[in-house]
């Protein structure tokens, strides 16, 4: 997995103190679902906005001033550097406070941290994206990244599901990808719902029905842990090897840089050795702790 050079980044972006967030301004707020919102934001310092770079799969630490800091992936694509996007579900103290912020409000951001999707090794491959719920956020960064360089990649299948039609995130993206004839977009919901004419079924089962070929393919999976756990066997049934399965893990984090101690799976720190892992890197070690 590619890791951005720490030494290169730490001087400029961390102001010599990696824990200090940069002040950013919210430019746009999008209601994704009743509990998920996407925030578009920019660095207040124009020079930072211009020079900031990241890779799909990396995450940041976000501050709601007066409340605290929390960890979220960057959900926008580095190929669209005008602003950054973060999608978050209202679940705790910081996310609830975040949801109360509107256009023009200031937040803090530090990052980017962690490794990223191995974009170079995906070139020339057929890509199978498997997402559930808000787990589409990190995949979405990579999907747009790939679509913006469409000729470098093979077939694209996207299997995405949520509990109900109202819980589908990034509906505008789902629509754009459905209309894109170079993408096979499959959307599903867990249970039948009124007014829903699309597929019904859990993501791993629908994935088996869609049955993408494992030939020259890589599957990139993100969703709730339970979905991830059932998706790997489904992929295996289709003939994907563990080396052809990639996921990005979520853990409680505080520092984001491998110091504070809580996001490890054995000697692997999700914040710096991950969050992106190939299934073969994690499948044999403490499978119950991710």
């Amino acid at each position: 997995m590619t890791t951005s050079s720490i030494s290169e980044r730490k001087k400029f972006f961390s102001q010599n103190n990696v824990y200090l967030p940069h002040v950013c301004v919210i430019e746009k707020v999008i209601d994704e679902t009743p509990t998920v919102r996407t925030f578009h934001f920019k660095f207040k310092d124009e020079r930072l906005q211009k020079e900031f770079t990241f890779e799909s799969g990396q995450f940041g630490e976000y501050t709601v001033f007066g409340v605290g800091e929390a960890t979220f992936c960057i959900s926008s694509s580095p190929t669209r550097p005008d602003h950054l996007e973060v999608a978050l579900q209202r679940v705790g103290k910081v996310t609830n406070a975040f949801h109360r912020l509107g256009v023009g409000a200031e937040i803090g951001f530090r990052g980017p941290y962690g490794n990223s999707f191995p974009i170079d090794s995906l070139k020339g491959k057929n890509l199978v994206f498997v997402g559930g719920g808000i787990g589409l956020a990190p995949l979405r960064s990579l999907i747009w990244n790939v679509i913006d360089n469409r000729d470098k990649y093979g077939k694209i299948d996207i299997v995405y599901g949520a509990r109900s039609p109202a819980d589908l995130c990034f509906k505008y993206d789902l629509e754009a990808w459905s209309k894109d004839n170079t993408v096979n977009m499959v959307t599903t919901i867990d249970r039948p719902a009124e007014g829903w004419n699309g597929r019904v079924g859990l993501v791993p089962a629908v994935l088996e029905q869609v049955a993408p070929s494992p030939d020259n393919a890589v599957a990139i999976v993100c969703g709730p842990p339970i979905m991830i756990r059932f998706t790997f066997p489904a992929l295996a049934k289709l003939g994907f090897t563990p080396e052809q399965m990639i996921t990005t893990l979520e853990k409680r984090m505080k520092c984001g840089i491998g110091k504070c101690g809580r996001c490890n799976i054995g000697p692997l720190f999700v914040c710096k050795d991950g969050p992106v892992f190939r299934y073969d890197q994690i499948k044999n070690f403490m499978p119950q702790e991710y």
């Binding site: 824990y19 001033f65 409340v67 505080k254 110091k259 101690g261």
Partner: peptide, 29 residues
Amino acid sequence: YCFDISDEKEKGTGIRKRAWDSCQFPVYT
């Protein structure tokens, strides 16, 4: 050496602090 990071709000200002934490607490993870 693990630690928690949290914000304390005081009038007109906020203070980000860190404090020793413990992997023995369920809330840690």
